[in-house]
Design a protein around this nucleic acid. Structure first.
Lengths: 207, 207
DNA sequence: CGTTCTGTTGAGTCACCTCAAGCAGTGTGG
DNA sequence: CCACACTGCTTGAGGTGACTCAACAGAACG
């Protein structure tokens, strides 16, 4: 897809933990992750944080209605990021259609997360998080035994799932005790029983 | 705005509590509220429900990425609704831009709701809900004493805010006891102290 | 004037949070 | 090479805010 690369501009590489833009910045460009992981988040006055998404390869972020970024974005790992000016959207009808479709997917993601945040136990949330990461990694996700990287901190996961850092830690170890996952090190999860994990997340068995 | 009406098709009137479309339906059209209130919601297997939004005049709903509705939509009050086929979007670049912008606003709304759902107490959530409705009604919203209609049931509010019906009822009465609001009847809230209500919702004083 | 549906109120429980201590991995300077 | 500090993760103990269950009140409806 070299054509797409052209449209979206050259890839710029960011080190890990590097801000891409800040909440409140004027929004002139929209971004796309080419490699690595980027997270978007919103802050409240009292330094409360909600992580609104972890973006991996192919995902757009920085979509803002008012010309002002409503969230901040920071790299979790080192990441390659492309961007295109919002002005360019005006002229490129094709790209605009693509962004529109992607925006709708983002609405769906946000609504999924809302369900997770309100309707499920802490265990189900953590399980759902792992399932999400696993399904991103592999379409053929029914395979047990695949390993998922967790490049973000426990606090990042907590702020995504609406839990405390301690609860995330506890539930991960619970899932390990149940035999559903393994934790070879703190930033890797091995999915032992994918179906069981999905069930635990409150999801139906099939993909 | 008669031109807009033309683009979006004629207004069709739905009685209250009438489904507009169901979760899982194939998505061929997108909708716009012309009058009244429509709510969108998602269901989980065990009849858990998350209301994803209350749409009032001017708002679009039914935006779906895959040609399948990821949420359901039902009128809360009697409502006038326009719609346009997704196919028509392909040809109408102008409308598409408008929808794109509206979609980004929806993402913002969803993220706002996520903050509310995870980071605030039940009291703050109910206060935030009332503030939201009040600000929709009146741009000049600093006026104390305005009355807000609550056409939806307590359970609807609960399923929007991620609370139980009982908690919504309790917190509304708490806000009444604090003198911030009045409840002349169950489906009307009178905002006595707008600034105080905003503070209670965890929002800064200014609009 | 029952019947039903929605909203309110009370009592008790529990899941998750908070606070606090301990631990492992990593880096730093003597 | 080894104390030392520092950061991120884990584990334990205790508190609490919202849920659940249950009874009641009031409105809507036939």
């Amino acid at each position: 897809m070299p054509q797409e690369v052209d449209k979206l501009g050259t890839v710029r590489v960011y080190p890990d933990k590097t801000p891409v833009y800040h909440q409140g910045d004027t929004a002139t460009r929209i971004f796309r992750v080419n490699s690595g992981v980027v997270m978007t988040f919103r802050m409240l006055e009292d330094s409360q944080r909600q992580i609104t998404g972890f973006c991996t390869e192919g995902e757009f972020f920085g979509l803002s209605p008012n010309g002002e970024h409503m969230d901040g974005a920071i790299t979790v790992t080192s990441a390659g990021i492309q961007s295109v000016s919002i002005a360019a959207l005006e002229t490129d009808s094709d790209l605009r259609t693509r962004i529109l479709n992607h925006s709708w997917r983002k609405i769906e993601d946000a609504q999924n997360l809302m369900m997770t945040l309100t309707k499920t136990s802490s265990e189900a949330r953590v399980a759902a998080f792992l399932v999400m990461l696993a399904e991103r990694k592999a379409r053929r996700s029914e395979d047990d035994g695949i390993e998922v990287r967790l490049p973000m901190s426990r606090l990042d996961i907590a702020d995504y799932l609406g839990l405390s850092r301690e609860t995330v830690s506890r539930r991960l170890n619970d899932l390990k005790s149940l035999g559903l996952i393994g934790l070879p090190d703190t930033h890797t999860a091995k999915i032992n029983q994918f179906a069981g994990l999905r069930r635990c997340a409150g999801l139906s068995a099939a993909h």
